[in-house]
Design a protein around this nucleic acid. Structure first.
Lengths: 263, 263
DNA sequence: CGAAAATAACTAGTATACAAGATATATTTG
DNA sequence: CAAATATATCTTGTATACTAGTTATTTTCG
């Protein structure tokens, strides 16, 4: 590939080149997504299928099948696949094939550590800054979560779980950090799905959320952080069990550190 | 093991479709990058130009110019642009144009907070786990940084800065968290470039690094974390000054919280 | 019959062409 | 002459065709 050559533009045209130097007034990532591109739809669908383990690690991703299913061309499909490859949910092997990525054990461990650090920040901020109405809002979310737990609605339960953590970040005025936490969560989500069928799990989670909120309401930052830590630590208890149960879903990269799961 | 060929089954095709269900043996993101695609080269070049402020916020990104400069087609250029758009370094306005993104003040603030939280984790881990050789390695990095500071080599200085923080993460056995920190750094890097011409800055940074390393060597985790916090806090001192100096480079999204810069 | 070479079919990466919308310039109209 | 309209020419998003490399299968040969 050759390097940049000064582009000597011959000004022969009758029309002057357009100025076209007007930057957009609004920030690029405005809250309102104008219209979802085809590539966005494919991305979202694929991503959901992957993190819900409908597409298990190792499954080939067939571009052609997707183009036919959506009735679109390769370009937007490829765009979606590349985005997922950057998020480490898909492995693209150059002239060979594309596959649902295995879950790297090292990433698992570090993701949990990183999430604990970031959630500690949001919980502390929420304890300091949450308004009374925001605390009431969080109580409402927990109540909704209790209702979904009692009726055994897994999906709705997780949605409420999400909302609770998001509400903490919002109360702490740290929406950007919540975005980071969500991105980290993606890496752990598939592993978490494997651990789902543990009886009584939902009620345990509920109690932990309740403890965190109580500490926030009492403005006891240290306790709130400690309770959140406890809550997040529950995930990493039995990684080795699940690794042995579905060995094909995981990959041992060199950096896996068992100590990470024992502090 | 042979394949039964029932005569009733009409074997019209001479060849069967390929199985093609073999996932890759190696993990997708192996340490050795096989060959850089054209899109990777464009991505890296553009990214460097953006974070070094050679391309200032608001500058239009002309796909055509890039395709001509590299002698390639739109596809890989577009791929690179989309990756940068996801990293919030570029704003793509649907049927209008593409521009170097402005620096969002809210992201700035939260990025600094998040980085402090993550570097606290790596520093603490490094204090607990660093081998003597790793500590010596870090001393060597600081010495190299001293030499670059004395000869006023900005670029080499920053490189050594990078290496020092990376060495801490490596010593703490948390390479994935270092990746996260680097991604956060990108968001702040352009702002940092604006603040560069402060006399004596390099020597201050050097001293702070030295303090962090001393604490690590003494296995004093609390002190190491505190020193690192001090080091990272220096960045956020005077955001308002630079915002007023180059108003066009920043964007005020609603969530900017001045408190974030005064704790 | 088994191993090695040839081959066919698939893959990702790239190039190019077209479509639809947006914006600056040119033109018309009051 | 100013404002409104028209139009030319940008822009991104998408479709499609082509290239080069990989892998499963078939064929050849010992």
């Amino acid at each position: 590939m050759k390097q940049a050559q000064p582009a000597t533009q011959a000004p022969e045209r009758s029309r002057k080149p357009r100025a076209r130097n007007a930057p957009p007034k609004t920030n690029g990532h405005s809250p309102i997504a104008v219209t979802a591109k085809n590539s966005d739809v494919v991305y979202r669908d694929l991503r959901n299928a992957i993190i819900s383990m409908q597409l298990v690690p190792g499954t080939p991703v067939l571009e052609r099948e997707i183009t036919e299913r959506y009735g679109i061309s390769r370009t937007p499909v490829r765009e979606a696949v590349l985005r997922l490859a950057e998020e480490r949910l898909i492995d693209v092997v150059p002239k060979s094939g594309t596959f649902i990525a295995r879950i790297p054990l090292s990433v698992l461990g570090e993701a949990i550590v990183a999430r604990r650090a970031l959630e500690a920040v949001t919980v502390r901020a929420a304890t300091e800054k949450a308004s009374e109405s925001q605390i009431m809002e969080m109580r409402a979310i927990i109540q909704r979560q209790r209702e979904t737990a009692e009726s055994g609605k897994e999906e709705a339960f997780h949605h409420a779980d999400d909302d609770f953590h998001a509400a903490i970040a919002t109360a702490g005025r740290l929406p950007g950090i919540w975005d980071m936490i969500q991105q980290i969560r993606i890496q752990v989500e598939r592993y978490r799905r494997l651990t789902l069928p543990q009886p009584g799990r939902m009620l345990v989670v509920l109690g932990e959320h309740s403890d965190v909120l109580d500490a926030i309401a009492r403005r006891d930052a240290e306790r709130a952080v400690a309770r959140m830590d406890l809550h997040l630590n529950r995930l990493k208890l039995d990684i080795s069990v699940f690794r042995d149960m579905w060995p094909d879903y995981f990959v041992h990269d060199g950096m896996f550190d068992p100590d990470m799961f024992s502090d």
